[in-house]
Amino acid sequence: MIKNIGTHNEVEEIFSQYEAIQNELNTLVHNNESLLRQQKTLENKRRDLLDSLEIKTKRPELIQELRSARLLAGLETVTGIGLTITMNDKEGYDPLVDKSDALIHDGTITYIINLLNGAGARALSFNGTRITAVPQIYCIGPTILFYSRRLAPPYVIIAIGPIEEMLAVLETDRYLQRITSNEVGIRMEIQTGQVVIPTFSEYENFREHITHLEATRNED
């Protein structure tokens, strides 16, 4: 049951280290929540100030462009009608008996995102983090790394967009039909309704993802 641990003293030592680190983590999580609250307050203040500045009347197109760029960049929390897709590995997955398809891989997630995009999705999130232009989604062992976050099932994809089209494409897709069949066993549940998709900046600093890009003039 206990790996690499021998004596009673060693168990005690590791447990006390664990407790100390757990306390440190609790403090960090608490600080994170407070920083996120602070960020929301500052973002609201920024928005109010932009509304009250004369620039809004003198250069309305600039403020409009700013808002549009924020929306398309995924840097604004948005709401709308959409789908919530919850996915789980096969119940009681056994690597000796079950196919590897019975586990959800990075490719399964990017495949669904691509299907939703093809059906006209306007904004998407994966386990609470916004999907961006070049989303870093890849498998590490049995978990999926999405940017700096390590995720485990259930995997939840939320998409705002035309519900009928998005539902139709998911329900008629042959690959999804196969992996959700009894033979393979992936569990997928779809709900429709009003959804909220968070801003990318809730978890990541977008500026770190444009460090190698130099904007150039558009000549065409």
């Binding site: 932009l50 500045l53 620039i55 250069r59 600039l62 403020i63 462009e65 700013l66 760029a69 924020r70 398309l72 960049a73 995924g74 840097l75 961006t132 232009a133 977008f206 500026r207 993802h209 444009i210 190698h212 890009l213 130099e214 904007a215 150039t216 003039r217 558009n218």
Partner: peptide
């Protein structure tokens, strides 16, 4: 200085969103 800041901010968002032509290796 607000105008310059707003333009700079807008450009950063636009680059991240893929709305600007970009260059590098």
């Amino acid at each position: 200085g607000a105008l310059a800041k707003i333009i700079e901010e807008k450009e950063q968002y636009a680059i991240f969103a893929g709305l600007r032509k970009v260059e590098n290796d």
